[in-house]
Measured scan of single mutants.
Amino acid sequence: MTSCHIAEEHIQKVAIFGGTHGNELTGVFLVKHWLENGAEIQRTGLEVKPFITNPRAVKKCTRYIDCDLNRIFDLENLGKKMSEDLPYEVRRAQEINHLFGPKDSEDSYDIIFDLHNTTSNMGCTLILEDSRNNFLIQMFHYIKTSLAPLPCYVYLIEHPSLKYATTRSIAKYPVGIEVGPQPQGVLRADILDQMRKMIKHALDFIHHFNEGKEFPPCAIEVYKIIEKVDYPRDENGEIAAIIHPNLQDQDWKPLHPGDPMFLTLDGKTIPLGGDCTVYPVFVNEAAYYEKKEAFAKTTKLTLNAKSIRCCLH
């Protein structure tokens, strides 16, 4: 018999989150649709729960009410004593943790798909938090293969000092899905179709896995975050240069030392320094102006996964 890495157990509980950011409308629209008619997301033997994560922000069509829901799922915020004085999103995070967690427990949901849009030209993107997770690498390989020839990129946010504390991190297997470009507060049919297909293929993978299909060893190309880059700023902290036209919409493309990065209003080009080629992502993302992030630098690498098969009882 072929030796293989056996994944822990079959997958039982899956959640699909929309509206973690209330103005990213593809996930909101799909989740609302699936709450009314969820036939397309159901798979035999699998509990799939669509869920609106930040209903107040969705109602106002804004990213958040008090603070970013997708950055506060750490033990400090989840452990705060519940009171009306807490920011709305912290209270909501505790409610979500109660419903789908608790985080880092045996009772937490197996998989959470968190649906997002970006204003950046990132196409279909899967966000991975753990480079050693054979199950998710296999799932992402399946999704990428199923979507081809449509490109699907994998963004690895594993980093020693950049801690995200994402909404989906309460699950055993957290999956971020990011599709763009799409303006905030807008629905685009092409973007919706791409996100819908990503979810379909992900659920198909889980179904095949649960039925005992063995997935042979595989490898995927990923883009691992190195650092986030702020806009150049003046002495008052105001933005002093904008994304250069040569960099705009060039997510995932190589940016070499000396290539144009920013452009000042008086026409001066600010190039990339250093001696390493990087791959920019979230270029000129609207939501990241407040976070002082013009783009993120990534490096390209390959992740390998062992063969996996479900432990059938």
Rank of each mutant, 00 (worst) to 15 (best):
A7Q: 08
E9Y: 09
H10T: 08
H10Y: 11
F17D: 00
T20P: 03
G27Q: 01
F29S: 15
F29M: 12
E36M: 11
G38L: 07
A39K: 11
L46M: 13
L46T: 07
E47D: 10
V48T: 07
C61M: 09
R63G: 09
Y64W: 11
R71C: 11
I72Y: 08
L75W: 13
E76P: 15
N77S: 12
K80N: 13
K81M: 09
M82V: 15
S83G: 10
Y88I: 09
V90W: 11
R92Q: 11
A93C: 10
E95V: 08
E95C: 07
E95M: 10
G101S: 06
Y109Q: 04
Y109T: 10
I112H: 02
L115K: 02
L115E: 01
T118D: 03
M122F: 02
M122P: 00
G123M: 04
C124G: 05
I127D: 01
I127H: 09
L136D: 01
L136N: 04
Q138G: 00
F140P: 01
Y142W: 12
L147N: 02
L147S: 04
Y155G: 05
L156I: 06
L156M: 10
I157P: 15
S161F: 09
A165Q: 11
T167D: 07
V175I: 06
G176Q: 11
V179D: 02
P181Q: 03
G185H: 04
G185W: 03
V186P: 03
D190Y: 02
L192I: 15
K197Y: 09
L203Y: 01
D204F: 00
F205R: 00
N210T: 06
G212A: 05
E214Q: 12
P216E: 10
I220M: 13
K224H: 10
I225L: 12
V229W: 00
D230S: 09
P232G: 00
G237M: 05
E238F: 06
D251S: 03
P257K: 05
L263I: 15
L265K: 09
L265H: 08
G267V: 03
L272G: 04
T277Q: 09
Y279F: 10
F282P: 03
E293G: 06
A296H: 09
K300D: 02
A305R: 01
K306R: 09
I308G: 02
L312M: 07
L312T: 14
H313E: 10
H313G: 11
